[in-house]
Simulated scan of single mutants.
Amino acid sequence: MTPTPPQRPPVPAALRLLGGFGLQIDARPVYVPPTAQKVLAFLALHREGTSRERAAELLWPDLPRNRATAGLRSALWRLSRRSDRGLVTDLDFSRLSLAPHVDIDLHAAATYATALAGDRHDTTPGPDVPPQLREELLPSWYDDWLVDAREHFHQTRLHALEAVSRRHRRAGRMCEALLYAMTAVEAEPLRESAHREVTAVHLGEGNVAEALRHFDLYRRRLRRELGLPPSPEFRRLLAPYLGRPADAPPPR
């Protein structure tokens, strides 16, 4: 009786979704056709797996069902040629999921950012903002199925940046605090909580003029783009220096 050859362990695969798409297999970059990229990214956002029908419907919403299903089959065939150990698992020949040996940067980054967003987190990143707090989820893609996941990670990342800035500020590390706060402002220029944190850092350093200048820049931008004033909370932060009651309407 011929013995069964031992199964080879799966080759590690790393899927990058932050900042843009990338795939490495056994630490080597692998080219993935655009349609197959979308399948991998879609499955990365559905870790529990999803049906073939739903995947085809969401990935090719403008095509008839038969053509969308054919597009999915073609993309899966192309993926099967990229790794002899398989990147996609077909559960019961009806549900698709990424193979367990595929590492996804988004999942690790989201877990990290969620932990940092809690002010009681024990560790604080150093003076350089970690890459996973700088990058957005597939920023150049415009697919509808991606919108909610991108916004979820975007908000989690912003909360983490602001929380880390607060921790650095309270510890007196103003340079680091300003870096994290400004990274949040750059990611979401109209986000008031990020601008308040920048202003609080300036005040913590005793730079009142800088704090007032930043507040005025934000106030003008907010009025120009949304027709709104800064919140009373923001004005109260600067009330001792504004020369008017904290709850008074801002100047036009």
Rank of each mutant, 00 (worst) to 15 (best):
A171C: 10
D216H: 05
G243D: 09
R120P: 01
H152Y: 05
P5L: 04
T124P: 01
E233A: 09
E57M: 10
L91G: 14
H168Y: 13
G20E: 00
L161C: 13
H121Y: 12
R224C: 02
T69D: 13
L178C: 04
W60P: 04
R173A: 13
P189D: 04
P127Q: 13
Y112V: 04
R81H: 09
R170V: 06
D128V: 06
A44R: 00
P139S: 15
V129E: 07
L137S: 04
G20Y: 00
A248D: 15
T2I: 07
D105C: 00
T50P: 03
G49R: 03
P232V: 00
R47M: 04
A163I: 11
T124E: 01
D128K: 09
R173C: 09
P232L: 00
Q24F: 01
A70K: 09
H168V: 05
A13Y: 01
L98H: 03
A13V: 03
L226D: 07
P240Q: 07
H168N: 07
P189V: 02
W141G: 06
R65M: 09
A177F: 05
H159N: 05
P12D: 15
A194P: 06
G71H: 15
M1I: 10
T114G: 01
D144H: 12
L222I: 15
S80C: 02
P10L: 12
G126H: 06
T50A: 06
T123Y: 11
R95H: 13
E151L: 07
R196C: 14
P61G: 10
R65G: 03
T114W: 06
T123F: 10
T183A: 15
E136Y: 03
P33T: 01
A211V: 04
A239K: 08
Y241R: 04
R169Q: 09
T4A: 14
H202I: 05
Y180L: 02
H46A: 13
Y241N: 01
L45I: 13
L106C: 11
D103W: 05
R16S: 00
D62S: 08
D122C: 02
D247E: 11
F21G: 03
G118V: 10
A41H: 01
L40M: 09
S231D: 11
W60Q: 07
A200K: 14
L237Y: 07
L190V: 05
P229E: 12
Q37V: 01
Y241A: 01
W145A: 04
H101A: 06
R150N: 02
A41I: 02
L242Q: 08
P139W: 11
A14I: 00
P3D: 08
N66Q: 09
M182T: 15
T2R: 10
R224G: 10
T35A: 15
T199L: 07
D92K: 12
A239M: 02
E53R: 09
Q37A: 02
A13R: 08
H152N: 12
